[in-house]
Write a protein that binds this DNA or RNA. Sequence first.
RNA 1: CGCGGGGUGGAGCAGCCCGGUAGCUCGCAAGGCUCAUAACCUUGAGGCCGCAGGUUCAAAUCCUGCCCCCGCAACCA
Length: 519
Amino acid sequence: MARQYITTAIDYPNAAPHMGHVLEKVLADVCARWFRLRGDDVRFQIGTDEHGIKIQQTADREKLSPRELVDRNVPMFQNLYQKLGISADLFIRTSDENLHWPTVIELWKRLEKAGVLEKRTYTGLYCSGCERFLTKKDLVDGMCDIHKVKPQEVKEENWFFKLSEETAWLKKLLKKDYKIIPSFRENETMALLETGLDDVSFSRPKSSLSWGIPVPGDENQTMYVWCDALTNYISGLDIFGLAKEASHAKLTAGSEVWWSSATVTHVIGKDIARFHALIWPAMLKHAGVRTPDQLLIHGFLTSEGQKMSKSLGNVVKPDEVLAHFGGNPDPLRFYLSHEVPVGNDGDFSWKRIDEVYVSKLGNQLGNMLNRVLVMLKKEDTELIIPSDTENAAKTKKQWQEFAETLNTFDIHGALQQVMTAVDAMNRAFNAAEPWKLKGAEKIEALSRFAESLRHVSLMLLPFIPGTAQKISVQLGVPYAGAMLEKSFVITESMKQWGAMKDWKRVGEPSILFPPLEKA
RNA sequence: CGCGGGGUGGAGCAGCCCGGUAGCUCGCAAGGCUCAUAACCUUGAGGCCGCAGGUUCAAAUCCUGCCCCCGCAACCA
């Protein structure tokens, strides 16, 4: 059995979660669910990146300690993802000193021992208003554009990771053993490698960054984001076996196999692609740990066609979207899966999500189910699904295409395939005119549509699990009750036309997607 | 000459690599059906495929030049 370890980026909890966070989690969740459904053994991890100057500053502003701030904010992420049905096995927090820290410290020690860390004096332009170093692009006429002051030249000690020496090795790795999806991102990364890499700063003096993991053996330095945050992918598995007693409840025994002998997929946004493509594997190499297998890179979400920004006031809060649909996460999950091709940027629009809800979910899918079930219910009799070579072949082909599409992470394409099938069903229903038929002929005709819907329901399971299960429950399919369990696998017989011999009767029809209240 | 993405009926997109009746979803109009969530089905209106040249029997598709838009990335290392 294939073993899959799938992770998302860990979120920075200095403010409430937004739609960008949701896009990524839904994408990863669809993948994780599909892996499970096709029979793979799956471990899925999400979490939060809680250290850094930004958290420190935000906490100061709100008169809290950094610890208090993250303890207040992190549950917003956890609750949201629970409401969205994100099926993660572990939510890791980088402030977790029992589970996360020991692995990070061990990794640092290994890097130092390998001779790839070096302490240097860094000279930069520091703006006391921003409380950070500025880069050239932050400057306007040599001044901080925000505070209109000339930044001071400040020298500080930093540990550096010698990434510049890894260019050749990384080129080889990316060509062969580390796949980047979509491929145009790979081209971008290769182009970046052509220009050569700089060494990266791995630590800050404690005086400027105190909220973080101390550098082992150099207590006046605090680790900077890379060694701390990226490491979550392996600390959540405790691959070195160092986790402190208190964290053992979060781990399953022998978790390290999820790294050592699994297909490792990191789902991330395009902003952090280069760090995952370059720094992360280079770190692992020098720590003597195998490198991950693939990077799945998604784009960003705009809001109503414009960049999401606080100043434009168009930031969409995921909780508002959930509330808009009465707490049902599936319209949002469907929207993100159906409207945003993986890898591309997408747009969130209230008008559009309402359209998709009404037209696709309500009128096409929900109504199709209802028209079949209501008629069958009136007949109040057992289903007759005749063996039918034409439908059997068609269904087989559909499953093949669906699996192929999803296996290449084209979740948008796969969902569209399912919806195209639903579309065809509506047409076929009109053509068959079952309301004009009588007796066994009528039951047979309707049973065919019920059987088609059973397949549709299975295919929808990765995308809109709750709805998919409800469809199967209404259809009265025997396995419906188990569909949301992580151990549920779509078996060969489930994929076969008419193979559910113990499925006799349909259940009670009810409206899946009620019309929206007029605002 | 920074880099990247893009400009196709009212909206959102596919087609472009491998030239040959311009397609999909939503919206709109008319008709049909009546099993169903006023849903569903059929048909139709609507486009000089950003602009200007070039290659070709033939260009949304290939070549050249130009114009315009959007990002440089999630609240801010």
